[in-house]
Structures are given as structure tokens and as C-alpha cells.
Amino acid sequence: MAHGIAVLVEHLEGQVTDVTYELLGLARRIADTDGAEVVACLLGHGVRHVAERLPADRVVLVEDHALHYLAPEATARTFAALLRGERPWLALVPNTAIGMDVAAWVAAALDWSLVAYCQAFDRRDGRWVATAQLFGGKVLADVPLGSDPVVVSALAGAFAADAVEPGPPGTIETQEPPAELATLRTCSVRLERPEVADIDITRAEKIVAVGRGIESKDNLELAEQLAEALGAVLAASRPLVDAGWLPRSRQVGKSGLKVKPKLYLALGISGAPEHLEGMKDAELIVAVNKDPKAPIFTVADYGVVADLFDVAEALLERLEG
């Protein structure tokens, strides 16, 4: 179909990532308006069973050993070949570590235009307008889309995850991998899991940070439990590190480490400028402090004026219960 919407399915080790469902949901919304077909492009190796969980009109399945971990070169070449054949109007790719290496490559190779960091996709005045984030979201760019084919790489978490439910597609169609896969110049690919021993808070996606409000070393256990339940790592303001309650590698701030996680939950931290310097760029800052005038609230997105122990316990109960 000339107006098809192709979605690159991101998966790893048999697991389809959330962002894929977000994109399939977005594709569904666009397709319903335009009367178009949603084509989920499933590239991989031994992933046929995954196709059964992709709620699209059609799944195009391409399997090859080289596509195992969706490594950049193989995925980009295969996806480009697939788009050449399918000729959709819109190709949706997640703007993730995996998708990033595919979207820009494919767009340049096909000479399609590309809108990256897309966070919204709306119909305005009879056209689709993609909204992209620039400068880490400090500026937004509205880009109207014409009839020429376009690649849009969308930010994870920007579109509703529950617009579609995992479920079987209309049809599943298998395609041969392109001949180019035989002459790849990516020689080997393997995955490595993190060692649990060394936690690098600068790489953590979620951080629970505690300050002097935690009062004693014994109370750290509660914070530790909460961090675990949230899938976060534990960090601290400097006085706690100075006291030897946590190692130096967990100190956030001017004389510690700078962090930029997706979530920074600050418990009992006043927000001294030396501390703020290390965390103010976090994407979402939630602060719990019993002092409504604590400076941490000047950088927080959400503030809670309460006893941190009450809040932490209530959160734990819900997360674990």
C-alpha cells in the first residue's frame, strides 16, 4: 500500500521493548486516520515467535544470523532494503541505542528526510506535524510532513504504551535477507551483561538519593530497599559519604559525580548548590523533604513536603505488595 507505515520492531533476546508497542500504537492512530496499513518490520534471528505478539496489519519477518542482536550495519542495510520494497510513507524507528544507528543510516541511504527525537505526532490543518525535541527538550520544533517518504525516530516514553495490546498480527510474511548481508564489514557481535559489583551512578537510569534527612546509617536499608524495588541505584549527598555510610563512588555533586538519570528521587536532601550542580539535569526530579523551603524544590519537577520515612514506606508497600 502506498500509504503504509513501517515500524522497526526493537527486541533483544526475545523480548520486544516497550517503545516498540508505543510506536505500534502511534502507527495505529495514524493509520486509522489515513486508512493506511501498519507494517511491523521484524528483523532478527530465531524470532518468528515474536511476530505473534505484534499487533500490526502485517508483520514482515526477515531472519538472518547477522541480525541477531540488531547490530547497526546489518539492521540498517536490511531495513533500507525492506523499505525500498515496501515504499511506505512513514518509517517509525525508536530513538534508542539500537534505533539511532538505523534511522539516520536508512534515511541517508534512501535520501528520505528524517525527524529525530520526535516526542509528539499530531494532525493539524489537514497535515501531520511531528514535534521534535532540540537541546535536550529546551526547544521544540514543529515539522509538518508532506507526501514524501520520511523516517521519524521517536523518543521512548513519549507515546502511550497501552494504545495497543500485544497480540497477533493480521498476516505474517517472510522475506529473504538482502544479498548485502553476505558482505557485511561488521565482523562480530556479542552482548555483555553488567557486573553487579561495580555500580556506576553516572550510567544509572534511576537514582534514589539520600541526604542527612535519613538520620542514621541503619536507615539506609530502607532507602536501599526502595531503590531495589524501583530498579534504581542508591546515591547520596556528601555528608553521608563523608560519614563513611556509602562509598565515594555514590556521591552526587560538585566534588562527587554528575548524574543525568531519567529519575532522581531525592530523600532528605536540602539541595545545596554543590549538590544541585551534580543532578539538576536529571530528566525527572522528585524531592521529598519536610522543609517546604528547601532549595531542592527549585530544581524538582515534583515536590513532596513530608517525612521521608512515611513516603518511602508507603512507596515500598505498593511496589512490593
Binding site: 556528601r238 563523608d242 566534588s255 562527587g256
Partner: peptide
Amino acid sequence: WLDSFAAG
């Protein structure tokens, strides 16, 4: 600007 370094 050497506060943690010196403290060590």
C-alpha cells in the same frame, strides 16, 4: 575545587 580530593 579540590575538596573531596584533599579530604581523601
